[in-house]
Amino acid sequence: MKRRFAINFLRAESSSPTLLARASIGSIQLYQALLRPFLTVWLVQNFGFVSQCKQNPTCSQYTIHQIRKHGTITGLKKGLIRFWNCR
């Protein structure tokens, strides 16, 4: 499974046209698979803080979808706006 993730990651978005889109989607996926679980566990263990997301799809998934749909700049903008509005 790790290997599959790595292969997917290296191939990153063969369907996306631009390098920028590939890079941004790849980094978001890296966040989802590595940083996010680390942060979750770190926050729970060090502060007893349970981070929880009320959105479905989450902001990162949404951003990936938007980048695929509208291109990198617009997609990232939409993702950021949604993140900022979540309170």
Binding site: N8, Q29, R36, P37, F38, V41, I64
Partner: peptide, 17 residues
């Protein structure tokens, strides 16, 4: 691909634990 990422995240979380 999304499923793979989610699976990977779950496995990572378990290890981190």
């Amino acid at each position: 691909k999304e499923e793979d990422t989610a699976e990977m995240a779950a496995a990572m979380q378990k290890q981190m634990l």
